[in-house]
């Protein structure tokens, strides 16, 4: 019973030809379109370079002051602001200032890109069940496929550098904001929507006056998740040429430098905690009006 013992797999030669064919056609595609795609992303790269240079050119005490003020503005918590200042002082003292600025720059740009693309996509998804059925599996793939796998086509297309790194971060970080925007809008109270209809609201008015404001807590949870996932990609992004805290971590792995890895790793953790707490507090502050003795 040879049939049962051996899986009836494709011929070795055919399989090789198939893989070769896919590789060749993608190489063809990237040769033909690589420059165009790169040109498309060029403004993004310029923005990222400009932001990083700006942060490095600004004297460090001013940068730390700005970070402290931003933390206070977001959270209205003096302790969080002081903690932010202290963290950046320690980071600078241990010689990680430049790498940290590079990481903050890429995380900021990646978050902006994710918000700019993710929220409209989430709105689109909330408007039709068919759209939701089409996009959900794509988001599932983006979240579960090993990052190294999609790094391959990105490198083939765009080579090594900031833009492919940014794309890799965005692919991984965008699903939560899309999902939570969609969910938030779908969870908006049906009665309130009916009231908007009864007063003759157009679908545009319903979207901006009712659906988005009421979905904001969920949308904001999505922004928070997106920031966290972008930070988680820092090390992997550094493998394809993104500067930042990931580079020394990679060096530490290959050379077994425990202290170097630990310090840079902890700096990433510090950034994550600051971003997380500040954005959460800000999101909570947006919800102040929900407090009171009576639920709505």
């Amino acid at each position: 019973m040879e049939f049962l013992d051996e899986f009836p797999e494709m011929g070795r030669k055919d399989l090789r030809e198939l893989k070769k064919g896919i590789d060749a056609s993608f190489r063809e595609f990237s040769r033909a379109n690589g420059d165009g795609i790169e040109a498309f992303f060029e403004p993004l790269m310029h923005f990222m370079v400009w932001l990083e240079k700006l942060m490095l050119a600004t004297p460090w005490p001013i940068m730390i002051l700005i970070f402290g003020l931003l933390a206070w503005w977001g959270s209205r918590s003096i302790w969080l602001a002081l903690g932010t200042v202290a963290s950046f002082l320690v980071i600078g003292y241990f010689g990680m200032w430049e790498d940290t600025m590079a990481t903050v720059a890429i995380i900021s740009v990646a978050t902006l890109v994710c918000i700019g693309v993710g929220i409209p996509l989430g709105i689109l998804m909330s408007r039709s069940d068919r759209m939701q059925a089409a996009i959900t599996p794509i988001l599932d793939i983006m979240q579960t496929i090993p990052s190294f796998v999609y790094l391959i086509p990105i490198i083939m297309l765009l080579g090594i550098g900031k833009v492919p790194g940014l794309l890799a971060v965005c692919v991984y970080a965008i699903p939560p904001i899309v999902r939570l925007t969609n969910l938030g809008i779908r969870l908006v109270d049906k009665e309130v929507l009916e009231a908007a209809d009864a007063f003759g609201a157009s679908s545009r008015q319903k979207l901006f006056d009712v659906q988005i404001p009421l979905a904001l807590p969920n949308i904001f949870a999505g922004v928070n998740q997106t920031i966290m996932m972008a930070l988680a990609m820092v090390v992997i992004a550094s493998m394809i040429g993104v500067k930042g805290l990931g580079v020394p971590v990679l060096r530490a792995i290959s050379n077994q430098y425990l202290a170097l890895g630990l310090m840079n790793g902890l700096a990433i953790v510090a950034l994550a905690i600051i971003f997380d707490r500040v954005s959460q507090q800000y999101g909570k502050r947006l919800q102040k009006h929900r407090e009171g003795g009576h639920g709505v």
């Binding site: 009665e191 009916e194 009864a198 007063f199 009421l214």
Partner: peptide, 30 residues
């Protein structure tokens, strides 16, 4: 719906993120 007929709902259906005056203005804003 904007001009001829307006409606009051059993569960109020107010906008929780708007103040009283902005809720009352809702139909006028529309």
């Amino acid at each position: 719906r904007r001009n001829k007929m307006s409606m009051v709902f059993q569960k109020f259906a107010l906008l929780p993120h708007r103040t009283v005056i902005d809720n009352v203005s809702f139909g006028l804003k529309i």
